[in-house]
Design a protein around this nucleic acid. Sequence first.
RNA 1: GGCCCCAUCGUCUAGCCUGGUCCAGGACAAAAGAUUCUCAGUCUUUAGACGCGGGUUCAAAUCCCGCUGGGGCUACCA
Length: 434
Amino acid sequence: MNALKDQTSTVRVRFAPSPTGNLHIGGARTALFNWMYAKVQNGQFILRIEDTDLERSKQEYLEEIMFSMDWLGLKWDELYKQSDRFDIYREHAQKLLKEEKAYKDGEAIVLKMPQMPLKFTDLIRGDISFDSSEIKDQVLMKSDGSPTYSFACVVDDALMNMSCVIRGEDHISNTPKQLAIYYSLGFRPPKFAHLPLIMGEEGGRLSKRHGAVAVSEYRKMGFLPEAIVNYLMLLGWSPGNNQEIIPMASAIKNFSIRKINKTAAMFSMEKLEWINAQYIKQKDTPSLIKLIVPFLEAQGVGPQKMENGKLEQIVNLYKGRLSTLSDFMNWTDFIFADQFQLPADLKEKFFSKDLSKEFSLLKERLSQLPQFETATTEQAFRDLVAELGIKASDLVHPVRVALTGKEVGPGLFDTMSILGKETTIKRLSEAVQK
RNA sequence: GGCCCCAUCGUCUAGCCUGGUCCAGGACAAAAGAUUCUCAGUCUUUAGACGCGGGUUCAAAUCCCGCUGGGGCUACCA
């Protein structure tokens, strides 16, 4: 009914990355919390590219950031680039100059720090105040005509009608400087919420020296976007019902900025992997296949090796043991490889004793089977070991090694069934003649 | 150094606002057992925390102060 009132009460939040690198996992979490907050409040989520540093900003990073956000499912309602808005910043700086709230220093325009209490109520931390006498005059426009971070940020947040600025804790100390800019410009500051930082496993802020930090790296490692998002939201927030695997719909339902905690959280690859494994197990096989195929292709596995029913059988068998999609490759390489080399250490461990008699008997029995499937191969195998008077496990392990080149893996008879009669027999022969 | 933020199991956290229901709950990791041809998975179980010191109070993980520890900022980077 009242358009103006509606306008001002609308929740508008933003994520403002700088395209000087790929989307960082910490940035992704900031984006996620902003996005969730917008969803809960039925507001808008804005993506603003802070590319005022012309030197370091790169188009490829910009594209990568948008791609990764999209991949994570964080869709934005509006998009801005600060490099398109230099005129606006210049105008506002000129205004401050005219009003003598700023002065020139060479070509640069510098804000006279007003002497006033610079305090705000952080939605997560409560009241925070600074003494403005401790803060020096702030450069607004650099000598090269580009705006500084704080200035562009304030002008944009004000002009874009942000209701709340949700960002990392590292910006707490920037807030008083920005508050001074808001007041000098005559703008009303938004609300602020400063998120706890994500730390690396050895402490300190999460950075490249701790391993992968870019969302794209996690994608390439075979993490699912749902799992990354799920893990990230658990860093500093909890739905409060002991739930760990949280579907987005229920996360949004339970989300509240008040429930975000203040403590920095250490990033744990192990927990991320566990969550990823849970999501993989939850997937139905056809969708999982779709996700795995690109990884197979990247390994040079041709489509002729991915026949419909076959791949489904394989994926079903290995689904429960995957932490990441790329794990699938490590488990199943022996299925897709034409050539098969038995690792020397395993050869030594399992075939120093002569097994040619057992192996040829097994080959004989297996080749006679009219139906080569899990149940029939197992029956044939068990009959044979009973006749030979040996323990099943005495033969199971060498046979697994012969077929897969690995000591561990799923049930032997499932493995045989996937390999098929021909390959199974061929590998049994090769193992004993080697 | 100055300013600012933070402090529950090894890690992520619930509880703290509105003190008693908490000899502190869950999850990851760890250990043990069950299942099985191995490993993984699954199920069951065990171990494991309120940083320290002062207050306030009949009562403190919860409120207050100090210390210690960790983190951030201190750029014409964002």
